[in-house]
Amino acid sequence: MRAAEKRVPAHEPVAYAMRAGMVESVHYGSVVVLDGDGAELLAVGDADAAYYPRSTVKPVQGTAMVRSGLDLPDELLALAVASHSGEPRHIEGVSRLLAEHGLDESELRNTPSLPAGQQARRDWLAAGGYAARLPQNCSGKHAAMLATAKLLGQPRDGYLDPDHPVQRAIARTLEELAGEPIAHVAVDGCGAPLFALSLRGVTRAIGRIAAAGADTPEGRVAAAMRTHPEMVGGSGRAVSELLGAPPGLLAKDGAEGTYVAACPDGTAVGVKIADGGDRSRVAVTAAALAMAGVPRATLAEVDGACPVTAGDLALAGELAAYWQA
């Protein structure tokens, strides 16, 4: 397959912000739903243009590291693929991951930040905390990358270089599971390499991880996320609630309006909101999951996920039709 084309995506309306029965704002985006064999069930907008999947590919990054020999207990493996809120359990988990591999916080090269969770940030600041590497939401991934580099006998300094063996292993795994070559390489917000693919390819990859056998690296990552959803996100986070709602469902959020989710049979959805905002992405993801066969009653339990209970947010076009059917 050819790499996804770098172009301005042809996004379409996917959700409307309503006020008193009239459209006030329009959210554009792209959505794709694939069945367990990768066949298209729904495509809205542009599922084939190159885009940055941001943190939605962390399960793929985790798979690559497990393939490379990283062996973590489930709660720490879930943290390795997390965009965590910076709660005490997350910071303690990253510290434990580092310590168990003879590593130190000073070796982390992720961008210093305050905790992402509102309450966690307030508590951190109240205790005299400041922007640091441990509370940053990608610190689990970075600790796992360092541990993998050490296991491979590779230099830990420079582990974020795209040519480092850990990053090359991640790129190979991503291309394999997505079924397409990487279209472009950039730097993510945390400092790690960011590989651009199509929304269709990333959705295919998460579907393959969700359907993988328990004894495979993909299956180990999926099991860790399902068993410890609180480590993947945090208290009150929609991604953690989605992971704990329909049995076996995988879900991963990402920056700039990105989301992926997949069922145990490999049916998967991918969402990209054009303007990078968060207001509509969970509702759109929930609608796509309903179209894929996930019971709407389970999605309605997720805070903010069900368009019926999301205030004045309405779905557009095919998504609305599928949700109402």
Rank of each mutant, 00 (worst) to 15 (best):
residue 79 L to S: 12
residue 174 L to S: 00
residue 155 P to D: 09
residue 156 R to W: 03
residue 33 V to C: 14
residue 251 A to G: 06
residue 244 G to R: 06
residue 64 A to G: 06
residue 47 A to I: 01
residue 128 G to F: 09
residue 299 L to K: 07
residue 294 V to E: 00
residue 50 A to W: 01
residue 143 A to N: 04
residue 90 H to A: 08
residue 308 V to P: 01
residue 288 A to Q: 04
residue 264 P to W: 00
residue 13 P to T: 15
residue 187 V to C: 13
residue 87 E to G: 14
residue 236 G to R: 08
residue 54 R to V: 10
residue 44 V to G: 07
residue 184 H to N: 10
residue 3 A to V: 00
residue 32 V to G: 01
residue 283 A to C: 14
residue 274 A to S: 13
residue 158 G to M: 13
residue 74 D to M: 12
residue 73 P to C: 15
residue 169 A to L: 13
residue 64 A to I: 06
residue 198 S to L: 03
residue 54 R to I: 11
residue 75 E to D: 15
residue 298 T to W: 15
residue 95 S to F: 05
residue 323 W to K: 11
residue 13 P to Q: 15
residue 35 D to E: 14
residue 90 H to P: 07
residue 34 L to D: 00
residue 255 A to V: 09
residue 29 G to P: 02
residue 232 V to Q: 08
residue 103 L to A: 14
residue 187 V to K: 15
residue 161 D to T: 02
residue 312 D to N: 15
residue 305 A to P: 13
residue 116 A to I: 02
residue 128 G to V: 12
residue 113 S to F: 15
residue 42 L to R: 03
residue 58 K to A: 14
residue 66 V to E: 05
residue 100 E to S: 14
residue 111 T to V: 14
residue 4 A to K: 11
residue 158 G to Q: 11
residue 248 G to S: 03
residue 91 I to P: 02
residue 59 P to S: 07
residue 194 L to Y: 09
residue 253 D to E: 05
residue 199 L to R: 09
residue 211 A to R: 01
residue 112 P to N: 10
residue 150 K to N: 09
residue 280 S to D: 09
residue 61 Q to C: 10
residue 96 R to D: 03
residue 128 G to N: 08
residue 254 G to R: 01
residue 82 A to I: 07
residue 251 A to H: 05
residue 4 A to I: 00
residue 221 V to E: 00
residue 325 A to K: 13
residue 59 P to A: 04
residue 226 R to C: 04
residue 271 V to P: 01
residue 47 A to C: 08
residue 149 A to V: 02
residue 311 G to V: 01
residue 302 V to D: 00
residue 172 R to A: 11
residue 180 E to D: 10
residue 55 S to G: 07
residue 162 P to N: 02
residue 41 L to H: 05
residue 191 G to P: 04
residue 321 A to S: 13
residue 181 P to Q: 10
residue 175 E to S: 10
residue 169 A to V: 14
residue 133 R to D: 08
residue 51 Y to N: 04
